[in-house]
Design a protein around this nucleic acid. Structure first.
Length: 350
DNA sequence: CGTGTTTGACCCGCGC
DNA sequence: GCGCGGGTCAAACACG
């Protein structure tokens, strides 16, 4: 901070932003408070101008405070809304589970039938016969799932292929530097993943691991992790879809340790039932190459999907604002900026 | 015993 | 139609 600032009498007008003076008490000069009688005694034009400026800044300060309060309130409101949405989504999925248990674990993300594996042709036929009357809408409350749409469209005779292309989930890639000695395919991104498969692909000798988000039961997000064919120290994580929940709170280090000890490809287990609201900023991907494809997210409810996306963005922004307002150093910086602005605009500056 | 990982088998889309 | 290859399933297994 500019030492000159602290020595300026004009700055003695406390802005009352809730921060102790930053080392101003060390100043040898005594504080000169601007008082009413002082202003009355020296009603010079510059004093008047200063007074006006002070009032303006005070007003601005008040507005900023109000804005911050509004942001905080909005954040809380959205947080509760988000919690409700998560609960509703979980409830919707649970009701599905009662009618079609095996599809619950799928999260609606994949299958045409509850049990794809070892499905006989008879089962296929019966499944098709049963499909319409039994589960006309596998996920009534949830954002429409691509697979559900596929199924619906396929049974109605539409070309599944095109729909599937249109309903492709958002895909993004994350490159993470990893220890080559560490054979695990763990990418710590703040979410909890459950590995459901591993495969050696043709173009890469390193196996590819398949993960599903295990934080929320109905979360459609999938992740593929594979070492780069060129550089084995680089882990390439490919994310498909969008989380329908907030980021889980960062797990305690002991948990992380246990999990990684438990399995080389395991993500941390949730210490408690999942909370839908992010309690703290989660780790942010290092290199995130978003290749979001221009696709209507879910054709059933495009508006709702867009709104959800917008909600996520707003939530993020407000979370940032909240974090900033809670940060004393940010307040200090704000005070500094405001003070500097006052002095800049002050005509008495000499 | 519950939960998560491993891994071989299966499904299915795509190119020929 | 056939084969290939990526993606997924689910039984077996491991671990706390």
């Amino acid at each position: 901070m500019d030492p000159w600032i602290g020595s300026q009498p004009s700055l003695s007008l406390d802005l009352h932003v809730g921060l102790p003076p930053l080392g101003r008490h060390h100043q040898p000069k005594p504080k000169v408070l601007v008082e009413e009688n002082f202003l009355q005694l020296k009603k010079e034009p510059e004093v008047t101008a200063l007074e006006t400026e002070l009032q303006r800044m005070s007003e601005e300060n008040r507005r900023l405070s109000e804005a911050l309060a509004a942001v905080a309130a909005k954040y809380e409101e959205l947080r509760s809304q988000y919690a409700e949405m998560a609960v509703a989504a979980a409830a919707g999925n649970n009701t599905t589970a009662t009618t079609n248990p095996s599809s619950a674990s799928e999260g609606g993300s994949a299958s045409v039938s509850p049990s794809r594996k070892r499905k006989t042709s008879e089962e296929i036929i019966s499944a098709h016969d049963d499909a319409a009357p039994h589960h006309p809408h596998p996920h009534p409350h949830h954002h429409a799932q691509p697979a559900a749409l596929d199924q619906a469209e396929c049974t109605s005779g539409e070309p599944c292929k095109r729909i599937r292309e249109e309903c492709k989930p958002k895909v993004s890639k994350l490159y993470v530097h990893a220890d080559p000695a560490d054979l695990s395919l763990v990418v710590k991104d703040g979410y909890q993943w459950r590995k459901y498969g591993q495969k050696v692909t043709k173009d890469n000798p390193c196996p590819r691991a398949y993960f599903r988000c295990s934080f929320a039961p109905a979360c459609p997000v999938k992740k593929k992790v594979q070492r780069s064919a060129d550089d084995c120290t680089i882990l390439v994580a490919t994310y498909e879809g969008e989380h329908n929940h907030g980021q889980p709170p960062p797990a305690p280090s002991s948990q992380q340790h246990d999990a990684s000890k438990n399995s080389n490809a395991a993500a941390a287990k949730p210490p408690s039932p999942p909370r839908p609201v992010p309690a703290a900023p989660a780790p942010v991907p290092l290199l995130h190459h978003n290749q979001q494809q221009p696709q209507p997210q879910q054709q059933g409810e495009p508006v709702a999907a867009a709104a959800a996306s917008e909600l996520i963005r707003r939530n993020l922004a407000e979370q940032m604002a909240m974090t900033l307002t809670r940060d004393p150093s940010f307040k200090a910086a704000l005070v500094t900026a405001l003070s500097g602005r006052i002095l800049e605009l002050s005509p008495t500056k000499d």
